[in-house]
Design a binder for these strands. Sequence first.
DNA 1: CGGATCATTGAAGTCCCTCAAGTCCTGTGG
DNA 2: CCACAGGACTTGAGGGACTTCAATGATCCG
Lengths: 216, 216
Amino acid sequence: MQRFKVGELVVDSGTPILMEGSNSPQLFTVLHGMGLRYKILSNGRRQVVSLIFPGDFLGLQAGIMGEMGHSVEATTKMTLCVFDRSEIWSFFKERPERAFALTWLAAVDEHFLGETLSTLGQRSAIQSIAWALVRVFSRGQSLDMVHNGKMPFPFKQQDIADALGLSLVHTNKTLGKLKEQQLAHWSDGTLRVSDLETLAKIAMVDDLTPAKRPIL
Amino acid sequence: MQRFKVGELVVDSGTPILMEGSNSPQLFTVLHGMGLRYKILSNGRRQVVSLIFPGDFLGLQAGIMGEMGHSVEATTKMTLCVFDRSEIWSFFKERPERAFALTWLAAVDEHFLGETLSTLGQRSAIQSIAWALVRVFSRGQSLDMVHNGKMPFPFKQQDIADALGLSLVHTNKTLGKLKEQQLAHWSDGTLRVSDLETLAKIAMVDDLTPAKRPIL
DNA sequence: CGGATCATTGAAGTCCCTCAAGTCCTGTGG
DNA sequence: CCACAGGACTTGAGGGACTTCAATGATCCG
């Protein structure tokens, strides 16, 4: 991969990285930090498409289709590994195993988007929030970010509300219920899950084994 | 592509084609007919992930990740072009331009899933249904299925309800409103859109040009 | 200390859901 | 030929999950 690597980029929290509709000349993989993918509708409402963790690949749509379908923003300080979009094609020609890994990543993303879709369409508010926390915590575990049952979770309640299609108020009250029941505490940027089993049951998640992801 | 083609498959309406969690040895592209991608949650509710039109590729997740994230079912009689899953790898090694097209398809799917997510999360019922009809009609136009403002649309109201996370009853009443306003009529398996502009405005869709899709 | 941002809580309203019938159509069997 | 059953669509009524509006704390920072 070193051959295609252009350099590293460090951005502050709040920095826009990719814009919906743009054709970025650069693609990224996340080395450190967290972020958000989101879309803004013409009525001003925001849909958070996914949370971004280390290891995620950013800009596939621009790289392949020539146009991003969503925007990407840094939630914390992030460091990114930068690639040149124009190299993508030589990628496919000369490094088929890497091209395959790229497609794998796309397939994994698609898989999770399907899960998210099911959440927005079919789960109640408490089920949705439980699902989101289970998802985040599982991902955190596989990234070794969990220590003593806690992991960093630097998002705002508004972010989760926008991710789940709920209002901020209702998101807050529903988080309160999970806290009351001693299932999950989230405050000051850290998430503590006390009873992952029960949380997963509420969330209607049956498979807690994290999905395999290729490394670029 | 002929080299990789195993054969053609014709299935009746209602036939399951791929099952969630399975690792199908076969992949398909749709030559004729329509179908559904869907997931079933443990509480029995169904989320329709997308409608399937001719030209769609089925089984990418099984081909790449080894496991389908959703099921696929035929809504009409369908004829499918069948490929061997084990050929995917040689695909990447020997036909990089085809591998690229495959990844392109994955990226397009991901793009549309993001749109769908925004619909479930941020649009009201009438906006959602208008959005779905605009999407279907646009796709129909680019596939030359539209004649005299009409196109075949062989789904049930329950399918659309499950796709948008709405109840059947409310879906029915909302479709009624669009009919009242002379914007779209859907009955007996055919969809007639009288005023695509206005429908798109309700749906908050600003770009009516259909997305480019590669052909496999 | 004033301003900004985020979290929290109360109250009122509404969009959408569930429950429940009823219609229309098609196919099937007596 | 008619009775009946099943499936999809339609319509009405009532209730509830979630939204919006509004106000208050809490924390941080120039």
